[in-house]
Amino acid sequence: MSTVSMTVNGEAVCGKVESRTLLVQFLRENLGLTGTHVGCDTSQCGACVIHVNGKSVKSCTMLAIQADGADVTTIEGLANEAGLHPMQQAFMDNHGLQCGFCTPGMVMSALDIVNRSGHELDESTVRKELEGNICRCTGYHNIVKAVQAGAKAMGGS
């Protein structure tokens, strides 16, 4: 067992892990941050997307020990006392989810798109950039609308 320490959603955390402990396992099982989901466990579905040092990664395909010293943001780090993050609010307003299982990964990937491509996103850009996130309920239509609306709202705030 090794000790890892990292910053998760602004707080310093540490814990003991095996070498093979995945980052998503560490978040869910050691820290109790169960908003990050495990869908396929084979880096296809994107339910486990989080940000490590400001970039989106699939946390089922990274070891916890690789994130030693990193700055990690999960879905739990977005809302604050004032309310939901604009991207979360946009998913709610646009009915961008049904069962909700893929939503944390969708939101984290959406924020990565905004970081790289800005606040005015056309539909084809959003669809292309969400290739690594799978939703089995919605048919994506409202997710795309939500990402566009959320990006715009973030630019206005």
């Binding site: 994107g46 989106s56 990664v57 699939k58 395909t61 798109i113 790289r116 290739e131």
Partner: peptide, 9 residues
């Protein structure tokens, strides 16, 4: 290649 999250690693 792959998708954005995969390309970041």
């Amino acid at each position: 290649i792959g998708d954005p999250a995969v390309r970041n690693r």
